[in-house]
Write a protein that binds this DNA or RNA. Sequence first.
RNA 1: GGGCCCGUGGCUUAGCCAGGACAAAGCGACGGCCUUCUAAGCCGUAGAUCGCGGGUUCAAAUCCCGCCGGGUCCGCCA
Length: 540
Amino acid sequence: MFLLLLEDVMKTLKGFADPRLIRESEHADLSTTVAFKIAKEKNLKPEEVAKSILENIEPKGYVGTVETVGGYINFFANYDFLSDTVEEILSNSNYGGLNLKGKVLIEHTSANPDGPLHIGHVRNAVIGDTLARIFRKAGFDVTTHYYINDMGRQMAITVLGIEKFGLSNKKPDHAIAEAYISANKLLEEKKELEKEVENLMLEYERGSEEIVGKFRKAIEIAMDGIKETLKRLNVSHDEFLWESDFVRNGLVDSVLGELDAMKVIKKDGAWIVELKDLKEVVLRRENGTSLYITRDIAYHLWKSERFERLVNVWGADHKLYGEQLKRLLEILGIKVPEIVFFEFVSLPEGRMSTRRGRFISADELIEKVKEEVKKLVSNREISELEEIAEAVAIGAIRFDFLKVAPEKPMVFDMKKAIDFERQTASYIQYTHSRACSILRKSGEEGKFIAEFCNKVERDLVVLLSKMPFYVKRVVDELKPNIFAEYLLSVASKFNEFYRDYPVLKAEEGVREHRVAIVKAVRNVLRNGLELLGIKALERM
RNA sequence: GGGCCCGUGGCUUAGCCAGGACAAAGCGACGGCCUUCUAAGCCGUAGAUCGCGGGUUCAAAUCCCGCCGGGUCCGCCA
């Protein structure tokens, strides 16, 4: 709805409209600084320019009043806007959605199957999964991929570890990590095993049936555990693709063939492509085998033929690699992915490392947070307590990672992770259940009357109208944190309303009016939490 | 050494791309609010040379240049 208001503001401004200069404002529903810009160009005073613009325009559509303060031109929505917003929210169960079209592929998480997901992978997973949810809401036909790096050295080491040490009966991904960590230690002591690792990689790429079987088995065991964790985190992937498939299906060879035909490859034993201002890239080893980037180009070729928009969620350590990949794709004339880079999650003692066994697993984090939540919940039957604790714990974890802009480095602090601040998922969940509680007790249909709105109610409704606007912003900017923050602001405004304006005890007429508002808030919070992959509890 | 990212009250962050209205929140501190719809809530007070130094501009947290601190990348690894 807010998007419609924005359009009407543009229409109102006519020739003065500049979408980049129209912003949300604390002083109005929308505000523009276009007068400052014109004043500068024509060497006039902003206030005067604003006033003369005001004299030349007529409010259109949802725009009620227009005013100027200093050089600003402020727009306020009319009653119809408020009524239509509430009407739309109450009648459209998909409220918040848009009608954007197109096939989008989002690749995320893609952790190496050499151990369990750790908290860094969780950051990747919740960013990727939330983007996928929001893209779907925006109307796109979304497919999510987990790209399994099965051809790496770390997989060969894992296979070696299983051979030498077997697997314990821990959760499968944790058992795999033990084998991987032990093998790494062994490898440090016995350098001669290095040959074995190399050989495993070589045989795997060549497709030796025995070795392929061993790799597949190890990876499937690890992935079983990883999938279990992802499921708990409400993270889903539509497809799991194996890196090696792109060697086996011939796409790697055809990519190399194409580049060769384009005469961009320097053959110096190995096959190398030189890139302007970037480090050169080796695409084929001297021994004839492919490299990670070669397979990745093939994977992107495959994706680009099937999807209109490609989004990858990658750790910031892949930035240079991402530039190289994009450049090579450009040379080949293949669609270039949009890459969301997120900075590292480190521990107070430094960087995490699966190889050294220095990490906090997602499973451990979930359990610790859940335990802490259980302390807060009282007087419940066991089954309900479990449900609430799980939902609140997962919500807290997802939100913690989601609310910070991807480019910010994070230092993980368990104390903070288990501390439920006001700015967290549980605050929104709690607010949602408060709204549910009122609706449960009221049982009334509700009837919104725009003219009845006080300041807080009006602000609240305008805020509710912004949900599609924020969905659009996330789709445009690929920053899920702005939606998290939006939902928080809705919850906060509702709590203000909750304190000051009783619903059930209000006089007739006002009561129905407020019930409608509560219902609208409940719907927005419910739909919004869904977009963040957080369960909207009706009771807490 | 070079590239990229981060640096905002004691702590965690939003705002920076598209410069403008008193720098916005949470935690922590202090002081209040539960015979009234769930206090996992709400209100108030104190607390910021927006890393530092220049520059551009009527106007800079935001743009430009130079520093400083932290992270990260610079494999015929993935």
